[in-house]
Amino acid sequence: MAGGTAARRAKALIARLDLTNLAEDCSEADVAALCDRAETPAGPVAAICIWPEFVAFARRELSARIKVATVVNFPMGGADVDATLAETRQAVADGADEIDLVVAYDRVESDPGFVEAQVRTIKAHCGHAKLKTILETGRLFDEAAIRTACHAAIAGGADFLKTSTGKVEVNATPASARMLLEEIAKAGGTVGCKPAGGIRTFEDADGYMRLAETICGSDYPSPDRFRLGASGVLADLLAVAAGTERPGGKAGY
Rank of each mutant, 00 (worst) to 15 (best):
V119M: 04
R178Q: 14
F141L: 13
T148R: 10
L101Q: 02
I154K: 04
T137H: 00
A58Q: 06
D80A: 10
H128G: 13
V92I: 08
D82I: 02
D94F: 11
H125N: 03
T165W: 13
A158D: 08
F114K: 15
V119N: 03
I122E: 02
D142T: 07
L85A: 11
I99A: 12
R65H: 15
V72M: 04
E87D: 09
T121S: 02
G127C: 10
R139L: 14
F57L: 15
A177K: 04
A64R: 15
V71Y: 11
Q90E: 09
S110A: 15
A86R: 14
M179I: 10
F141H: 12
T137G: 01
I146L: 10
A155I: 12
I122C: 01
V68N: 12
A91E: 03
A64F: 15
T121W: 00
F74S: 03
D80W: 07
Q90N: 01
D111H: 06
R178W: 09
S176M: 00
I146C: 10
I66L: 00
A175Y: 07
G127H: 10
A144C: 00
L85P: 01
V92W: 04
A96E: 03
L161Q: 12
A86C: 11
A187N: 10
I134D: 05
L181V: 05
F74L: 03
L101G: 01
L101M: 10
K162M: 09
G188E: 00
C150H: 04
L85R: 10
A129F: 08
F160S: 02
I66R: 00
T173P: 00
L140V: 09
A187C: 11
M179C: 08
A144S: 04
G113M: 06
K130R: 15
Q118E: 14
E87R: 03
E87N: 03
D80E: 08
K162F: 04
T88M: 07
Y105S: 02
V108Y: 00
F160V: 02
V119H: 03
F114G: 14
I99Q: 12
K167T: 07
A158K: 06
R178S: 13
N73L: 14
F74Y: 14
R89G: 02
R89N: 05
T133V: 09
H125P: 01
D82T: 05
G95P: 08
K162S: 06
F160Y: 14
L180M: 13
E98R: 11
I99N: 09
D159P: 07
V108D: 00
K167W: 12
A153Y: 00
D97H: 15
R59H: 06
M179G: 04
K162I: 04
A145G: 05
E169Y: 02
D80P: 01
L62W: 12
A185W: 05
A91G: 03
R89S: 03
D111T: 09
D142S: 04
A69H: 13
R107F: 09
